Each structure stands twice: as structure tokens, then as C-alpha cells.
Simulated scan of single mutants.
Amino acid sequence: MSIVVTGASGQLGRLAVEALLDRGVSASDIVATGRDIDRIKEFADRGVVVRRADFADPDGLTAAFEGADKLLLVSTTTVDERVANHRRAIDAAVAAGASLVAYTSMSHADTATTILASTHRATEEYLRARGVPSVLLRNSWYLENYMDQLPLVLRNEAVVGAAGQGRISAAARADYAEAAAVVLTTEGHVGAVYELGGDEAFTLTGLATAISAVAGRQISYTDLPADEFARALTDAGLPADLAHVLADADLGMSRDELFTGSGDLSRLIGRPTTSLADAVAAALR
């Protein structure tokens, strides 16, 4: 059995390879792919098969996926190129004869109204159109998206966003990676749609409260109109297009589009998900 993981040089893909190894999958049965294989050399040193895969190169994808029994398609990051990239990857998986494609989608991709959700919905639709045996891993937000902002939050003594009091079922990347590894190494997942998220949802006001409790300082939440939040992100150095997408994602949060009470994630991994308090404590340690 050969399990191919795309984006193994990225944060989620790298963790997925580690999770497969932790579950006892032989290194020689894992194919870690990435555009820059120098960034995943450590996997090759551990016996994992490493192949170059550029989503803009269909022939290269076909070669990278050769012999794949199962494929973890980690969604790509460039939003305006995502759907075309994913279609080429799905075509390559079909050519390889893969028995399962596990796709890291987004919460409520079929109904959510954000820019990000539309790209995931288009990918899900293409999987169905191609008749690929698949499982949808609809991930909510990553806790790390907020933990990476902690230095700025502490400096300004404020969490800033446009999510209102919407609930966010964020979980750690490692939790999502472990769920992917479970799906890839156990049976009965073809056709499943998993709404994955943390056991305890929180609002951005709750995030500020959690940071306050650990940091021992009063952190507030400042809720901005989406356009003002986008300007704040560009002022912080983000490209305007990305700032617009992230502000739009916050609007989706305000509509609970990143909330799930399914419990799918903790059931798959067989343990509670990483809590917000633990994530903040680890980040500030």
C-alpha cells in the first residue's frame, strides 16, 4: 500500500506524514511530495519516498502519484490558483488508480459563503464529477492561526477581527493531521464527510479572555467592520488580496460558518482535541 501526501513541506502535510509514521505505516509505504524536495529531505533520510510534485505541472503530478493507493490532497494556499491546482491533482490521482482521495476541505464547504469556502466547494464538486472514491475532511480554523499572532496581540493588548460573536471550532494542526492519518489507515471512510473542529468552540472575545488568563494581562477584543479589518491587515504587511480573503473569512465566522458541534474530530483521533487554553499556554511558554 502506497500513501501519497501532497504539500509535505507545508505545516499540515508535514504533520500528516509524521502521523502516518506514528500509526505504524512503514516509511517505504509513504510518498511525501512537495515542490521543493530539499525542504523534505529529512523524510528521505528516514526512509520515506520523496518525490517532487508541482501542482502547475500535470505530467509531474502523474509521475509523483504513480503507484498511489491512497492520496491525501492537502489544499493549496494560493487562493486564486487553488481550484485549477486541485483539479490537476485529482486527475493525476485518477490516472494513478488511487482507491481513495482524502481532501482537506473547509467547514460547511457546501453551504458556507466565504471566498475560501467557494474554492473548497468547487474541489468537492470536481471529486464527485470525476467519480473518485473520496472522503472529505472539512477542517475548521487552525489554533495556530491565532497563536502565531500572540506577540502582536500582547503588544497591542487586543485581539482584532471582524468575527463578531461567531463561534469558531478551531483545533490544532496536529489534531487534523492525526485525523487524516486515521482515515488513510483504516477502512469505512469512502464517501464520508467529516466536519472537523475542536471540542470547545470559542468566540474572539473568548480568545481574548483565554489569552488574558494565561498572560496575566487584560486583553480585549476589538471587532471591526470587515473593510477596516482588511486595512489593518494590509497595514500589518499582508498583501491586499490575502487581507481581503482573511477579512471575508472573519465574516464567515460571524455567521458560525467555522463552527461545528459534530464531534467528528475527537471521535476519529480517539481523544479530546487540543484546547484553546492549552494552545495559549504552550505558545506563551
Rank of each mutant, 00 (worst) to 15 (best):
R39C: 05
L21P: 01
Y103F: 15
G34V: 11
L116R: 11
Y103T: 10
I115N: 09
A112C: 06
L20M: 08
L136Y: 07
E18Q: 15
T111Y: 01
T114D: 03
L136V: 10
L100F: 13
L127Y: 00
K41S: 14
D80F: 10
T33P: 05
G60D: 02
A102F: 03
F55Q: 07
H108P: 03
L61C: 00
K70R: 15
T111A: 06
A84W: 03
G47Q: 04
L21E: 06
Y126F: 14
V94Q: 10
I37K: 11
A98V: 14
S118A: 15
V101C: 04
A122Y: 06
V94T: 11
D110T: 14
D54S: 04
Q11A: 13
D22V: 11
T104H: 04
D29T: 11
G60W: 03
L136M: 14
G34H: 07
V94S: 04
S107M: 08
D57Y: 01
L127K: 03
D80C: 07
F65R: 03
L137K: 05
G67P: 02
R130H: 07
A44T: 08
A84E: 14
A64I: 10
R39N: 06
V79C: 08
E81M: 12
A93T: 08
R87D: 07
A122R: 11
I115Q: 13
A95P: 02
T62N: 02
E66I: 10
D29H: 14
A122E: 13
E124F: 03
G47C: 07
R138E: 02
P58V: 10
R39L: 12
V17C: 05
F65A: 02
T119F: 04
S118I: 12
S118Q: 14
L21A: 11
D45E: 15
G67A: 08
G34E: 04
K41A: 15
V74Y: 04
A32C: 00
